[in-house]
Design a protein around this nucleic acid. Structure first.
Length: 369
DNA sequence: AAGCCGTGGAG
DNA sequence: TCTCCAAGGCT
């Protein structure tokens, strides 16, 4: 491959077709870092809104160093992979104490930050500091699987190393960040899962295209099957306040809030499962009295059908929840639910109840006590 | 190293 | 409806 010609074709295309993204307008290290963490396993179009809100709230490292985890998780709500947000806070602490709130330019120091792996370190080093470091993400792997017609599964570590070496040899000293971004942009817009070779600025350099096998690259590993599960969750209102609890570290969605509930076990109905979960989780005896809605959502490899019920206490005793499987919890006003970060499925339940509130009155105090 | 961590859009 | 999979990292 003629490296110089390849690079100029690619950069010319990027200059004409690269998207106008907020962190590209002002690529200081802090902004580039945040954008790259947000972009992990997330399509850029979804990142933009979160990025803008983040920068309005935490415009620099100094302001981030004072941030509270609750607020950061709320800002991150819906973006997924919440450990990224917690790792940003851990990094902020490191950057404040060990680096005096000056973002380090040394790739090794960048790579040492929590949540920063080989890709992100290379991206920040090249985009923010102009260093000739490769940034090999899924886009770049796919692009080079086609350029080089690699017949090994791209998930293999050997393939990544091959691609990193190749990229390192191609990076132009005057535009390392643009080169890396151009490779990714090409993968996102042209050399996508279904390639659009007719629009490709570097198809003359592409072995898979020359051989007519671009559609069968990259070679993918066998996929894991989705697991379907049924869950039940309950809305318990008392004196106009609704019971929620905060998930513990080590759980799925650590630090996020939810309504009590859990998996429907074999042989159980959703209502039975819900009564059992309330006993186990919060030591309250409740009865599901009314189906609110069914929310279908998915996380990682699970496909969840969540049956949502309005619950009432059986018995007259004042409820004192004991949070056996949560970090904390309590009864909060429905209007306050907006201040807590919920997993997407529970957030959709809240939105359903708010939309439906006038007709159904899910949160009406007099209806439930 | 293989499994886990979220979510929503594309096809 | 259902599968695939994103500007990955951690354990």
């Amino acid at each position: 491959m003629d490296g110089n010609l390849f690079t100029s074709h690619l950069l010319d295309w990027y200059d004409a077709n690269g998207r106008d993204l907020p962190w590209r307008r002002e690529p200081n290290p802090y902004r580039v870092w945040i954008s790259e963490i947000m972009a992990q396993q997330t399509q850029l179009d979804r990142v933009v809104g979160y990025f803008d809100r983040w920068m309005a709230r935490y415009p620099d490292l100094q302001s981030l160093a004072l941030a509270r985890e609750e607020d950061v998780l709320k800002l991150w709500e819906g973006l997924g992979y919440y450990s990224r947000a917690r790792n940003i806070l851990k990094s902020a602490s490191v950057l404040a104490h060990a680096h005096g709130c000056v973002f380090p330019s040394d790739p090794i120091a960048i790579r040492a930050l929590p949540g920063v792996g080989a890709y992100t370190a290379g991206a920040v080093a090249s985009i923010a500091f102009g260093l000739c470091e490769p940034a090999v993400d899924a886009n770049v792997l796919r692009v080079f699987a086609r350029l080089l017609d690699l017949d090994a599964p791209v998930a293999e570590t050997g393939v990544r190393q091959t691609v990193e070496r190749t990229v390192r040899a191609l990076i132009p000293e005057d535009r390392p960040g643009d080169f890396n971004q151009a490779l990714m942009e090409l993968g996102a817009l042209v050399c996508a899962k279904r390639p659009r070779c007719g629009e490709c600025p570097v198809r003359a350099h592409c072995l898979a295209h020359a051989r007519g096998v671009a559609d069968s690259r990259p070679v993918l590993p066998p996929s894991r099957k989705a697991i379907r599960i049924e869950m039940a969750t309950g809305v318990l209102v008392r004196h106009g306040r609704v019971l929620i609890q905060k998930r513990r570290p080590g759980d799925v969605w650590p630090g996020l809030w939810e309504f009590p509930g859990g998996c429907v076990e074999p042989g159980e109905t959703p209502r039975q499962a819900l009564a059992r979960e309330f006993r186990e989780e919060v030591e309250l005896v409740v009865e599901p009295v009314e189906k609110i809605t069914v929310v279908a959502y998915s996380y990682t490899r699970y496909r969840v059908t969540m049956h949502c019920y309005r619950c009432r206490l059986t018995g007259d005793a004042e409820p004192v929840p004991v949070f056996n499987e949560a970090a904390e919890g309590g009864f909060v006003l429905p209007a306050q639910l907006a201040e807590y970060a919920f997993p997407a499925g529970h957030r959709r339940l809240i939105e359903f109840m708010e939309r439906d509130a006038r007709a159904a009155g899910w949160f009406d105090a007099g209806r439930h006590d």
